[in-house]
Design a protein around this nucleic acid. Structure first.
Length: 293
DNA sequence: AGCTCTTCCTGAAAGC
DNA sequence: TGCTTTCAGGAAGAGC
């Protein structure tokens, strides 16, 4: 499932191959995951791709229509969220089309950018330049850009479980199930720990761990555990470095204890019960047994 | 504020 | 073997 490192890898590939190209045509299949398919088909043809960047888990394609010298210039951003199984790949039109390909964006050099998404949990939307700040504002901080001070401020007063907060895109944008589990393992923090109960030092370690995990994962071009491939259709390599994710029952690389899986915030959460000790059980007030308890 | 539950969707895996 | 059921999961929305 594409998280920050996977999306970053896709973005780097697209930036290299799409920058300066123009979109000359749009063909769509199923459109239930597209906010406004009509607008997409109307506004994209003729637009020049001025840049490709990443906004959390969104691929952000900057499009410019019209001639720069005229008032007709319009800058819009094509935002693509890959969901669980989304793929953005550049192909030649004569190459075979993968099943579940629902978007074809023809380019002026003869190639096409294809969007494939088996489960259609992805999302495609167009955001005009004027509304981009608002869109960005609804998302949290970039995990690799956020300062340690802001990171602390966003977590230290929250009473939710740390895993739920790390997954929440309005707290930090870009982390998903794989990288929260891997970061928490490296920080030796149990996923169900309450954020406000963490010490300064634990938050510091977590901050560092997230950076280290994401940086290493980007270096290996992401994790391919199911459908993820980059913009060339190539798999990533970080799945070989997972220390807890999908390793239930296997020995902890640090202490040998069996990795466990529990549900936290409705998500499978993998952790080492020895390296990441569970939080103290919440005191449940029970009626006093005797007269004075 | 933050929890659980539900919905979307498909294919893999488990169950029978 | 083959059909049916279950499950996974990012995000949003409902309801508590």
């Amino acid at each position: 499932m594409p998280e920050l490192p996977e999306v970053e890898t896709v973005v780097r590939g697209l930036r290299a191959s799409l920058s300066g190209r123009s979109i000359v045509g749009v063909r769509l299949g199923k459109t239930d995951f597209i906010d406004d398919p009509v607008a997409l088909a109307e506004k994209l043809p003729g637009a020049r791709i001025a840049g490709v960047s990443r906004l959390g888990k969104f691929v952000c394609v900057e499009l410019v229509s019209g001639t720069p010298a005229t008032f007709a210039e319009r800058r819009v951003f094509l935002l693509v969220h890959l969901g669980m199984t989304g793929q953005l790949i550049t192909r030649n039109p004569d190459e075979p089309v993968a099943p579940h390909t629902h978007g074809f964006f023809s380019l002026d050099d003869g190639r096409e950018l294809r969007y494939t998404d088996i489960r259609r949990f992805g999302r495609i939307l167009l955001v005009p330049e004027s509304l981009l700040p608002e869109f960005r504002g609804r998302l949290g901080a970039e995990p690799l850009d956020v300062s340690e001070e802001e990171f602390n401020a966003r977590l230290s007063s929250r009473r939710a479980r740390i895993k739920a907060l790390l997954l929440n895109q309005s707290v930090l944008r870009g982390l998903g199930n794989i990288y929260t589990d891997e970061s928490l393992f490296r920080a030796r923090l149990h996923p169900a720990r309450i954020a406000s109960g963490l010490t300064r030092k634990q938050l510091h370690t977590l901050y560092r761990s997230i950076r280290e995990v994401l940086t290493a994962a980007i270096r290996l071009r992401g994790s391919s555990i199911s459908d993820y491939v980059d913009s060339n259709g190539d798999r990533g390599g970080f799945q070989r470095r997972h220390r807890v994710y999908q390793r239930e029952g296997k020995p902890c690389v640090r202490c040998g204890e069996k990795i466990r899986r529990i549900l936290v915030a409705g998500r499978s959460s993998f952790f080492c019960p020895r390296c990441q000790p569970p939080p103290r059980k919440r005191r449940t007030r029970r009626p006093a047994r005797g007269r004075l308890g």
